[in-house]
C-alpha cells in the first residue's frame, strides 16, 4: 500500500524543505536523494479522476507496479472522482506543479466526451496524453433471462416495432453514442436511460427494467453467466472466444462508424512540464514504453482479470488523434447529449 499512499502535500513540503535546507530544524527530515541529479529524485504523483477500487485503479496499479522498476521510484496515487472527472483534472491536477512529477491517469473516452458537452473551465490544450495504456470497445449486451431479445437482430427488429429502453452508464459515453448511431442507421427506436455507472446499468438490465444495455466491454465480459454481449463497436471482435455472440456493428449493418472505445485510458501530463523539462519527459516516455513488453506487466494485468488483448500502447500522436476524433463525434451528437437543440 505504501507505494500508493497519497502524500502529495508531504512532497510539496519536502520541496520547500530542500529549498530551505539550511534551516536547522528541518535538517533532520529524511530528504531522500534530494540532491541527486538524476530524474526522478522523488516519488511520482498520479492523479486518478475516478474512484479508488475501480477499473482505472486496477489498471494503473498493474502498470505502475512494473514502471516503477524502470523509473527507480515509487508512485503515489490520489483518487479524485467528482463531476465526471473534472475535480481530478481541474482542482487537483490543475493545481499541481508542471515538473514532470505529476501525471494524470485519465480516460480519453468518456472524460473527453464530457469536455465537449460541458466546456471545462481550463484550456484543454494544457494537458497532453503521453501514452495510451488500453482500449476497451463499447458493446451492446442483453440479459440471458431476456426471452425476446437474444441477439442484435432481435433488438433492431423489436426496436422498429416499439421504443426500447437502453441502460447506459451516462449519455456522454462512447458506448451510448454507438447505440444512437445504430438506431439512426437502422431506423430502430432506442431510448437511452442513463443509470449512473456500470454497476447500476448491469443491475437495470439484469432486473429487466431495461431492454438491453450498452457499456465498455470490460465491465460486462466477466459476467458471462448473466449477460450475452451481442454487438461490439470496434473494427473487429477483440475477444471472439469470450464474446461469441457479438457481431461487429460496422460489418453486420454496413455502417462506417469509427471504433468507439468506451475505455481508452492514458497517462497525461501538463504541456508546460514538457516544455520546462524535456529531459525529464524523455525519461518518462522512454521508461514507460518498456513496460508494455515486460512479461511482468502481462502477469500483473492477468491478475486483474482484464483481457491482455486490450492493453495497447498509443503514442502521444495516437492519443491526440483519438481525442480529436472523440471531440468531433461529441460535437455531432451534442444536442442529444445536452437535451438542448
Amino acid at each position: 500500500m505504501s507505494d500508493f499512499e497519497n502524500d502529495f502535500s508531504r512532497r510539496l513540503f519536502l520541496k520547500g524543505a530542500s529549498a530551505t535546507a539550511g534551516a536547522g530544524a528541518l535538517s533532520m527530515l529524511p530528504i531522500q536523494a534530494a540532491f541527486a541529479a538524476a530524474f526522478p529524485e522523488q516519488n511520482i504523483q498520479i492523479f486518478v479522476p475516478t474512484r479508488a477500487g475501480g477499473g482505472a485503479d486496477r489498471n494503473m496499479r498493474a502498470f505502475t507496479s512494473v514502471w516503477k522498476n524502470y523509473l527507480k521510484t515509487n508512485f503515489e496515487a490520489g483518487f479524485y472522482p467528482g463531476a465526471a472527472g473534472r475535480v481530478g483534472y481541474e482542482t487537483y491536477m490543475g493545481k499541481a506543479k508542471a515538473d514532470c512529477y505529476n501525471l494524470i491517469f485519465g480516460n480519453m473516452g468518456p472524460e473527453v466526451l464530457n469536455w465537449v458537452v460541458k466546456k471545462p473551465t481550463f484550456d484543454l490544450n494544457r494537458f497532453l496524453y503521453i501514452a495510451q495504456v488500453d482500449q476497451d470497445p463499447g458493446i451492446v449486451f442483453v440479459s440471458k433471462k431476456n426471452k425476446k431479445l437474444k441477439n442484435i437482430d432481435d433488438i433492431v427488429k423489436e426496436g422498429k416495432k416499439r421504443t426500447l429502453n437502453v441502460g447506459v452508464s451516462r449519455l456522454a459515453h462512447p458506448a451510448s453514442l454507438g447505440v444512437v448511431a445504430l438506431g439512426r442507421h437502422t431506423g430502430a427506436k432506442f431510448n437511452l436511460v442513463p443509470l449512473s455507472g456500470g454497476r447500476n446499468t448491469r443491475a437495470g438490465v439484469a432486473t429487466g427494467e431495461m431492454d438491453f444495455g450498452a457499456l465498455p466491454s470490460g465491465s460486462v465480459v466477466r459476467k458471462q453467466k448473466q449477460f450475452d454481449i451481442v454487438a461490439v463497436f470496434d473494427k473487429e471482435n477483440p475477444l471472439p472466444n469470450r464474446m461469441k455472440k457479438a457481431v461487429v456493428v460496422n460489418d453486420h449493418f454496413g455502417m462506417k462508424l469509427p471504433p468507439l472505445y468506451a475505455g481508452a485510458r492514458a497517462f497525461g501530463i501538463k504541456r508546460e512540464a514538457i516544455e520546462k523539462h524535456p529531459d525529464r519527459y524523455k525519461v518518462l516516455t522512454d521508461t514507460l514504453q518498456k513496460v508494455y513488453t515486460d512479461p511482468a506487466y502481462k502477469k500483473a494485468v492477468k491478475k486483474t482479470k482484464a483481457p491482455w488483448k486490450y492493453i495497447r500502447y498509443g503514442s502521444p500522436a495516437d492519443c491526440e488523434k483519438y481525442v480529436k476524433y472523440i471531440t468531433d463525434i461529441g460535437a455531432e451528437y451534442k444536442s442529444l447529449l445536452t437535451g438542448k437543440s
Binding site: 497519497n6 502535500s9 513540503f13
Partner: peptide, 10 residues
Amino acid sequence: RFPKGPVETM
C-alpha cells in the same frame, strides 16, 4: 489521504 505536515513527514 490527510494533508501531511511536518510531523507526518518526519
